[in-house]
């Protein structure tokens, strides 16, 4: 039994050759390579980027019915199926990379994730993280909360709902159309990922005001989705290899982002005339108010979401206290 070989398939919600999401250190293809190496070829996983086997967002169903064994994506893509899935990618004003992993690995997060997915016959592991993302690109500076009124912005997901409550006109656009739309002013602002990925789309040629804080995505976890029957069929050593490889990718992808974003931001500011700014404090405070309200509404509407929400927030409250006397003073004194 222990020498049985497994040939699996993994689909991915992202396009071929996307750095971080498909290729490069700590990426899903890197995960497949690591697993093959560690298992000495006993578990080989053939990787298919979005569109190669199925369209980008069809991976959940494919894993669910066992046609493919694994899928790489972000859990919040499944918010239409399971509203609580949002919490396993990122929560606006939620936890950063350290906090998110602390919750997932040691604060009961992964148990809740398993509990949410078990009825659908799948399980998930964190397999990567972009770290903190940027607020996005704006054609005009944001000086007060009123500047959001009637602003046309490409912003998907929960953050879109928060902006909409502040008068932003939310526009849904596929990645490829962000640039032409922003460049011509069809939209006034767009959110994508962070300096390295955004520069790849050329967004610096379309808008010059680049804002942070990553209030909407303080971190962003990549999800490795696994068919449960397939998972149970693995011997323990291969299970351990999958778990360890996913953990390694989680760390390696994040450190890769940290290193590359630093270099990309420097390039954007120094060579492309980009103005990188922090959103005004009162704007952030208002965004937080609305976010709290919208998260509470979501929790009230769905018992499964409420359970995850309450657990997440309880963990966060404690973690915030700790980081208030650990990380925060450290960062503050560094900046000062």
């Amino acid at each position: 039994r222990a020498q049985e070989a497994f040939a699996w398939k993994m689909t991915n919600a992202y396009s071929p050759s996307s750095p971080f999401y498909v290729e490069g250190p700590g990426s899903p293809t890197d995960f497949c390579k690591k697993v093959a190496a560690m298992s000495d070829g006993r578990l080989t996983i053939q990787h298919f980027a979005a569109g190669e086997l199925i369209p980008a967002l069809e991976g959940f169903d494919a894993v669910r019915d066992g046609t493919v064994e694994m899928n790489a994506a972000n859990a919040y893509f499944w918010a239409g199926k399971l509203p609580a899935a949002q919490y396993f990618t990122t929560v606006p004003f939620g936890l950063n990379f350290q906090g998110m992993n602390a919750w997932l690995y040691h604060g009961g997060g992964m148990e809740l994730w398993d509990e949410l997915y078990a009825p659908l016959g799948v399980k998930a592991l964190p397999m990567g993280n972009t770290g903190v993302q940027m607020t996005g690109w704006f054609r005009k500076p944001i000086e007060s909360i009123d500047d959001f009124k009637d602003l046309k912005m490409r912003i998907p997901g929960l953050a879109g709902k928060v902006y909409a409550a502040l008068g932003v006109d939310v526009k849904l656009l596929p990645g490829g159309e962000i640039f032409p739309a922003l460049e011509r002013g069809v939209i006034d602002a767009a959110e994508f990922v962070g300096p390295y990925q955004d520069r790849r789309l050329g967004l610096q040629n379309a808008a010059k005001y680049y804002y942070t804080t990553g209030w909407h995505e303080p971190s962003n976890a990549t999800e490795l989705l696994i068919n449960k029957v397939a998972w149970e069929s693995l011997p323990d050593d291969l299970k351990a290899i999958v778990q360890v490889a996913a953990m390694a990718c989680n760390l390696e992808s994040h450190t890769w982002c940290e290193a590359n974003n630093a270099a990309a931001l420097k390039d954007l500011v120094e060579n492309h005339g980009v103005q990188a700014n922090v959103l005004p404090a009162d704007v952030v405070a208002r965004l937080k108010e609305v976010t709290d309200q919208i998260l509470a509404e979501g929790a009230a509407a769905d018992p499964a979401t409420k359970k995850v929400h309450d657990a997440f927030m309880a963990f966060k409250a404690e973690h915030d206290q700790w980081s208030a006397i650990s990380e925060r003073p450290y960062h503050n004194s560094l900046a000062g």
């Binding site: 050759s17 996307s18 490829g176 159309e177 640039f179 032409p180 790849r200 789309l201 050329g202």
Partner: peptide
């Protein structure tokens, strides 16, 4: 689509 696959900016 090529921009997406090749990692070039659409512009």
């Amino acid at each position: 689509l090529l921009a997406d696959i090749m990692g070039e900016s659409v512009g």
